[in-house]
Amino acid sequence: MPVESRPRRVTSVDVAREAGVSRTTVSYVLNATPHQKIPDGTRQRVLDAAARLGYAPSAAARALQSGRSDVVLYLLPDWPVGPAVTHTLVRLSTALAAHGYTLLAYPRAAGRPVADVWRSIEPAAVVSWEDLDPADVAAMRAAGVLVAVALLRGPGTAEGSLEVSQQRIGRMQAEHLAAAGHRRLGYADPDDPRVRGFAEPRLDGVRAACADLGLDEPVVRTVPPDTATAADAVRAWREAGVTAVCAYNDDVALAVLAGARAAGVDVPGGLAVVGVDDVPAAALAAPPLTTVTTDQEGIAEHIAALVVAGLDGTPPPPRLTSDVVRLVRRASA
C-alpha cells in the first residue's frame, strides 16, 4: 500500500489569500477580537474561506492567544486497563470537555520519559494514577503545569490529589463475609506484578479486618486466569478450612468461580466469593458475583473538579467520602 506524503497544514495565510484580505483581518475575525470594525461581508468571507479550506488553528496558536494550553495529559498506568479504568477515562474526558479542556491519554508503558512527554505537549495539567518522581513534579510546576495524582498520593502532590483507600476495599470484603458467619477466610492474589500497588493494600485491609474481628490470618493463594490452577487453589483453601474468599478483583474472582466448578465445590454453599470492580461479567457469572465497586463516575468528576479548580485558582472540591466505595450483593456470597 503506498504511503502518502505528509499534507501541508492550512494556515491563516492561505485563508487570507482565499478571502482576499490581510492576515491581520483573518486573525481578528477567527479570534473574535473585540473592538475591531470588520464589515459583516468581510467577516463572512473570511469564515467561508476558512470553512472551504478546512482551516483549524494549531494548539500552540490557541495557547499563545489564551495564555495557556487546553490539553490535560493523562498518564495511563502500566496496569491491565480493564472496564473500571476505561470507564473513568471516558467520564473524565467528558467532564473536562465541559470546561473546555481536551484529555490526551499517554501510556507510561511506552517507556518514554515523563519529562519528554509533557515537554513535547506543553499541557495545562498532568493527571497520573501513580506517584511521580519529585524532580518531574518540580519541573512541571516550574513550567506552570498543574500536577494531579489520582488514587495514589506521592510526595509534593497533596494540593492536587485524590486517594481512594484500597485497604477499605479489602476490609469491606472481609467484614461482609464475617457478617455472613464465615470464620476462616482466604485471599485470591493476582499473578500480575503490575497491580501489586493495589493488591497488597487490599490484602492488608483483609488482614486488618480479620485481626479486629478475632479471625485467623487469611490464607493467601495466587490465582492466575487458569481453571486448573484455580481449582488447585480452591482445594487447598477447603483443606485449610476456608469457607469464603476475598479476591483481588472480579477477574480473579471469576477464575476462582471457574476453579470451584472444576473442583466440584458449590458456590456459595462450599465457598463464598467476593470480588472487586463490578465488571460487566460479574452480574452474568454463575452464580452472580458479589463485589465491591467504586463510584468511577464520581471519581472522574472529582478529578476534573480538582484540575479545573487548580487551573482557575479556586478552592479544591471537598475530599471524597467513604461512600465512594460500596458493596454490591449478589448470590456468590
Rank of each mutant, 00 (worst) to 15 (best):
P155D: 07
D133I: 13
G241W: 02
A105M: 11
S165R: 12
A56E: 11
L215R: 02
G111F: 10
V292P: 13
V256D: 08
D251A: 12
I121N: 00
I303Y: 06
A260M: 10
L92A: 00
P83G: 03
P2R: 14
A138H: 05
V149E: 08
A115C: 05
R108Q: 12
L73K: 01
A139L: 12
V10S: 04
P80M: 11
G269W: 06
A188F: 01
P155N: 10
V3S: 13
V81S: 00
A142H: 08
A300V: 10
D78R: 02
H99P: 00
T321C: 06
D251Y: 12
T86N: 11
P134D: 08
R52A: 02
A59P: 00
V137P: 15
Q296C: 03
G264K: 10
P316V: 09
V164D: 09
G197T: 03
L73R: 00
L92R: 00
A230P: 11
A125C: 01
P134C: 14
P316L: 10
R168K: 14
G214V: 02
V10F: 03
T291I: 15
P268S: 09
L177N: 07
T24I: 13
R168G: 11
V195K: 01
S120D: 14
A309V: 14
L73D: 02
Q36A: 09
Y74S: 08
A51G: 02
T33Y: 11
G214C: 03
V223N: 04
A61N: 09
D277A: 14
Q36K: 15
P134E: 10
V90R: 06
R119Q: 12
V26Q: 02
G156S: 15
P134W: 10
A286V: 15
V145E: 03
R221F: 00
Q167M: 15
R194V: 05
D251F: 13
S332Y: 05
D295T: 06
E301I: 05
A138K: 05
V13K: 05
S27D: 09
L177Y: 10
A282S: 15
P34G: 06
R238Y: 01
V21F: 04
T293M: 14
S120M: 08
E130D: 13
G160S: 13
V325N: 07
S322W: 02
R68P: 05
V223C: 08
P107L: 06
E200N: 04
V292S: 04
S93Y: 01
S22Q: 09
V245L: 13
A262M: 11
P287D: 09
L306V: 15
V71Y: 00
P83F: 03
N249M: 11
A230E: 07
V265N: 08
G154H: 08
A263I: 05
L151N: 12
R330M: 14
T229A: 14
N31D: 05
V307P: 07
R108D: 03
P113W: 10
L162N: 05
T102S: 14
T314H: 06
E239Y: 00
Y187P: 13
V307A: 08
Q166C: 06
D78I: 03
